[in-house]
Design a protein around this nucleic acid. Structure first.
Lengths: 208, 208
DNA sequence: TATCATTGTTACCGATCAGTAACATCCTAA
DNA sequence: TTAGGATGTTACTGATCGGTAACAATGATA
């Protein structure tokens, strides 16, 4: 009752296995990736990340000094994965920028049609963290800027008369697809039309 | 010390003014509108809404049975405002659907360039409430569907050969503009190009 | 074998959250 | 004048949040 400092002996089951910090970090980032994307970043507690990872909260806080830092690590991972998928799309049609662009959108439409798809995790950040000065927002800014830059390279490579305009048009559709996939779910007319309208735009912007 | 049930007499300043419930509701919805949009819905507490409104928490809970219900009322308001602005854009060029569409995007670009603009509050909901069955999500779904429907009406009115395709193309750009304005802020190349690319698309989709 | 940094575990902190009970005060209508 | 419903105010609940202290167990190295 009054013995506030009582130490419970605890059976000390010692079910615990020692996990090297690098692997623990991996588990935690994987769990964070799933939960943040599925449920939203603010909605996911550090405790639930830890539980999903099968780790202990202290283990997390020994790797990441705060939830914010965990979020940054999460975004870093997502960005790497994004560019891997991007390059995978391009690799299907080497040196054919027009077909590469169409492939990007076809793959995007495919991904958007998977149940559980929730759009772009970077856009989620922009919504969930209104302060543009937040470090996570800076990562979002850099990421989206890089996407436009890569699109410009592609539209230049296909000799579009106005590569900037075309690239921004495409970038807006990418963003739109992210949003639409969230609103309308896996079965969306808009998403289904996406590759078609891109092809039409490319035809008109730079006849081949 | 131990007198837990002590009632503090309170000077009873009686600074309180009685406000009829309808007006209280108005104050609360106005405060909720500002805060939800600016800071995000999950990030805004009921207490802060109440404080911003200059009301008391009980006053809020006598009008809205829960925060969720307040959110629904907030969305209802935003939807009404959205359609008012939409109609205002159309009214600038009666019976000229092509110019009406361009006006919609011009006005959208203008709004997106205002400091503090945070994109589409309905898209925020989709991000912040992952459960598609959430009543707020249903409102978002209905709203976005209505937008596409209205766009189809416009593209049909301008005798586009494929009004559905054109309408969805435009809808994707609207969504994209919302997202881009958040990422890049008030000074965005993408947003600046928006009216131009729309005009180009309209020219090519349905020559006038 | 002894050392000691690393890892595992529990219990806790103060803050904040959505929501409510209980009571004080006011205003209107009869 | 009075009764009673509407409104104002305070203080509270139980849950959850991000983050930490303190200590126990472990295992590689010397």
């Amino acid at each position: 009752m009054t013995n506030l400092n009582a130490k419970k002996p605890k059976p000390a089951f010692s079910k615990r296995k020692r996990v090297p910090s690098a692997q623990a970090q991996e588990y935690i980032l994987q769990a964070a990736g799933e939960l943040f994307y599925k449920e939203g970043i603010r909605a996911v507690s550090v405790d639930s990340v830890v539980e999903q990872a099968g780790m202990n909260k202290m283990t997390l806080y020994r790797q990441f000094s705060s939830k914010d830092e965990l979020i940054l690590a999460y975004l870093d991972r997502q960005s790497k994965q994004f560019w891997e998928e991007w390059e995978a799309s391009l690799a299907k049609h080497p040196h054919q920028p027009r077909r590469q662009i169409i492939q990007l959108f076809t793959d995007l439409a495919d991904k958007s049609s998977v149940i559980g798809y929730r759009g772009c995790c970077f856009s989620h950040i922009a919504t969930e963290f209104p302060d543009p000065e937040h470090p996570a927002r800076q990562l979002v800014f850099a990421h989206k800027k890089a996407v436009i830059q890569k699109l410009v390279e592609l539209t230049k490579a296909m000799n579009a008369p106005d590569p900037e305009i075309l690239a921004h048009s495409l970038a807006l559709w990418i963003e739109g697809a992210y949003a639409a996939s969230q609103t309308f779910g896996a079965d969306s007319d808009t998403i289904r039309m996406l590759p078609v309208i891109v092809e039409k735009l490319l035809d008109e912007a730079a006849p081949h």
